[in-house]
């Protein structure tokens, strides 16, 4: 196990608060619309972190399937924001090279690059850049939808840059 990450996560107050409060009731797991695809249920993920099995938690695909719909968060009887917990785990995984090949990880990086460059994003640009990086064939699959959007005059590649971009970059 990577001792450094364990330490990093242990010193994260937000993660700590989640782990300390959780009563392992499973409301989050059963509320999650994507639970059937997860290797660990959200509740189990919290238990893993609680028992210091950080490596296993960061390797799990559970957090990557979280779409942050926060159904778990509003239902949790001890008011843990599990969605945010997942986001934190994703961040640690990305930072520590656990997810270099995951599409979602690439998507976030593409997104951040766009924001850092323009201050804003355009969905079209995001999807195209992301697809070129991962699976250009995917763009073909999207053609019918693109055609519809184009017809409706919605699709556009233009992206207005934030004027005072320096404020964004620093």
């Amino acid at each position: 196990m990577n001792v450094q990450i364990t330490h990093l996560i242990n010193s994260d107050k937000k993660i700590h608060a989640v782990v300390e409060k959780c009563i392992q009731c499973g409301t989050c797991s059963a509320s999650c619309p994507l639970n059937q695809y997860m290797d660990y249920t959200p509740r189990q993920l919290i238990a893993l972190v609680r028992e210091g099995m950080i490596d296993e938690a960061l390797k799990s695909r559970t957090s990557w399937l979280c779409s942050t719909c926060y159904l778990c968060a509003v239902r949790c009887p001890v008011k843990i924001n599990i969605g945010d917990f997942m986001t934190s785990l994703k961040r640690y995984a990305i930072k520590n090279g656990y997810s270099d090949n995951l599409p979602y990880s690439k998507l976030t990086k593409t997104y951040v690059d766009l924001v850092n460059k323009y201050g804003r994003i355009s969905e079209t640009k995001l999807i195209i850049t992301f697809s070129l990086k991962t699976n250009p064939l995917k763009l073909l699959k999207m053609l019918p939808l693109s055609a519809k959007l184009l017809r409706e005059g919605i699709l556009s590649l233009s992206l207005e840059k934030v004027k005072n971009i320096q404020e964004i970059r620093t």
């Binding site: 986001t87 994703k90 961040r91 990305i94 976030t108 990086k109 951040v112």
Partner: peptide
């Protein structure tokens, strides 16, 4: 949230 995933 996408940005927050990288840099909170």
């Amino acid at each position: 949230n996408l940005y927050r995933t990288i840099d909170e």
